[in-house]
Design a protein around this nucleic acid. Sequence first.
RNA 1: GGGUAGGUUGAGCAGGUGGUGAGCUCCGCUGACUGUAGAUCAGCCGUCUUCGACUGUGGGGGUUCGAUUCCCUCCCUGCCCA
Length: 391
Amino acid sequence: MNGPYIGQAACYEVTVAPPADRSTRARLGELHLTHGVVETPQFMPVGTNATVKALSPDDIRDTGASIILANTYHLYLRPGHERIARLGGLHRFMDWDGPILTDSGGFQVVSLGDLRVVDDEGVTFRSHLDGSIHRFTPELAIAVQEALGSDIAVAFDQPVYPSSPRALIADATERTHRWAERSLAAQRREDQAIFGIVQGGLDPDLRAASTRFIADLPFDGVCIGGLAGDETPPQRDATLELVTDLLVDDPRPRYLMGLGSPADLLEAVHRGVDLFDSVMPARVARNGQLWVPGGRLNIRNQRFLDDPEPIQEDCPCLACRRFSRAYLAHLFRAKELLGYRLATCHNLTFTLDFMTRIRTAIRAGTFPAAMTGLRARAGRVSGGEGAVKSA
RNA sequence: GGGUAGGUUGAGCAGGUGGUGAGCUCCGCUGACUGUAGAUCAGCCGUCUUCGACUGUGGGGGUUCGAUUCCCUCCCUGCCCA
């Protein structure tokens, strides 16, 4: 293991390295950024539009979050990155004084699949808001992120679904590499870190080549992209193993983009991932799914209407401290806004607490053994039998 | 007491003036959701042996080959008059 990574706008130090017996690659670290320190492994709540949906900055802080994610493409379209810059930058705009990572807008290349055309120079989008045409390039993606003033910018990439034809994946991966170089070349700010993104789909050769290529560039961190798609869990794990294997002596943080169910987090930490983001805990919360040890509650179920218990007995979140399941069930049926807020507070608190438990186990040197208990706590929050009778 | 408008599957409705009412919106139930075009979407939501079948338009009776529809009667509800 190499020493700490010292960059201009980011430093990363592994404080507890994986055990010599290689029973896990899980590691503990500290990521120092312009707006603060992030303990890793860490989960970043997603605040696409300069807000974690339904939460105030105080709410976000109360969930235990230390760093959040915002989106370049969305803020470019509305309210406009230049406007945010004039108003003092993204931190001031949204009153979040902790670290922020901005996604480059690359994900919108897949999520807005019907509204864009890709060429070697960049991507032409048709705005999902008003249909207007916009041209995104690596240079623009960096310029927008510099205007926003995030702690970590991310190179513009072209993700594809893992199930895509090999030729398409090869093409997109090659393009992602060119765009990574251009993103680096476009960078001007010295107080902003920049991460590069590995693509390559599920193909071992493409993925390995992409990992080597991106890791050879002077990025401050390595993102593992293209994985929260239509791959199976074994495919995902295999791809993660491959990437983290190649990065095993790399001193920089590794960030798995887009995965965030508790089980996903655990398996990826085990394979050496340091950073995560996902919409999942917040989105499913808004849709009535509350995460508890061992699984999930569908708060819309009739049985909760008379349930005086908190969502989760020992949870410190706003919802669990002060309200009953019955109240949450009522709020959801009435479609009251407070319901979405409380549910989001809870799922994010659960997720951040889960990360804390992971870090605690790594620090104590009990991580691989602790996985059994953590797997049980993660339960199933997706894919069938996951509902908990009375957690 | 007289008049009038009604009674449709948990709720609210649509439709239906002699030959297919299981159609809509709620409610309810289940599932999905992973770098947020998502506080959203999908399925189910009378019964059963569920790729289908059966029952069902307030109760009873009548006319008819056939009635939710036409006739008689009763019950219930809203409104108006006394």
